[in-house]
């Protein structure tokens, strides 16, 4: 009886995000105790205010019945957002309904591409990073035609060079 709901929340990436946030707040609280009174007062007030809220959110993920009661706290009670959600709007706070659509594989790919650009920037400066990243991303990730990839890379590379290097005098290498 217990295995079905447990596996449901264990497979939910949102559960791990809330767990991560809980850990962050807990660490902040533990570290706060070591500071002078005035330095720890406000962080402790905020931390002890935030911790139970994240715990309630986590409980809602583990026990669906709690989550249903938590629906009373949704913004929909202030605005009737039911129509918006039905329409599949993607505005601010589009809500946990989107969680089901999280494409982990694609997210990981994008994460690697973007992080790769940052690594090239770190070692070779931003001009090489921007030109290389744009060309390869457009050609291989976005499957653009070679001419389109070259045109976009050339135009953006030129704009970046003019704005950041010529006008702002931003050093290419950090």
């Amino acid at each position: 009886m217990l295995s079905a709901p447990r596996s449901r929340f264990l497979g939910d990436a949102g559960f791990y995000l809330s767990l991560l946030l809980l850990a962050f707040v807990a660490i902040v609280l533990v570290l706060s105790f070591g500071f002078p009174y005035r330095a720890k007062l406000f962080p402790l007030i905020v931390g002890f205010g935030t911790l139970p809220l994240i715990l309630v959110d986590l409980l809602g993920k583990i026990f669906p019945s709690v989550a249903r009661k938590l629906d009373a706290l949704r913004g929909g009670q202030v605005f009737d957002t039911s129509k918006l959600e039905a329409g599949g709007s993607v505005g601010e706070n589009s809500g946990p309904d989107d969680a089901a659509q999280l494409d982990t594989g694609k997210l990981l790919k994008v994460c690697l591409w973007f992080s790769g650009c940052f690594v090239v920037f770190y070692f070779f400066g931003f001009l090489i990073a921007v030109v290389a990243f744009l060309f390869f991303f457009l050609k291989f990730f976005s499957s653009c035609r070679l001419t389109t990839a070259m045109e976009v890379t050339g135009a953006v590379g030129l704009a970046v060079w003019v704005i950041f290097t010529i006008v702002l005098d931003v050093p290419c290498f950090w």
């Binding site: 905020v46 205010g49 938590l70 706290l73 949704r74 913004g75 202030v78 706070n93």
Partner: peptide, 17 residues
């Protein structure tokens, strides 16, 4: 702001921290 108020307040607390 649209969506879950509980999570909205949580995010505000995290921002403050």
């Amino acid at each position: 702001v649209r969506g879950n108020t509980l999570k909205g307040v949580c995010a505000g607390g995290l921002g403050l921290l």
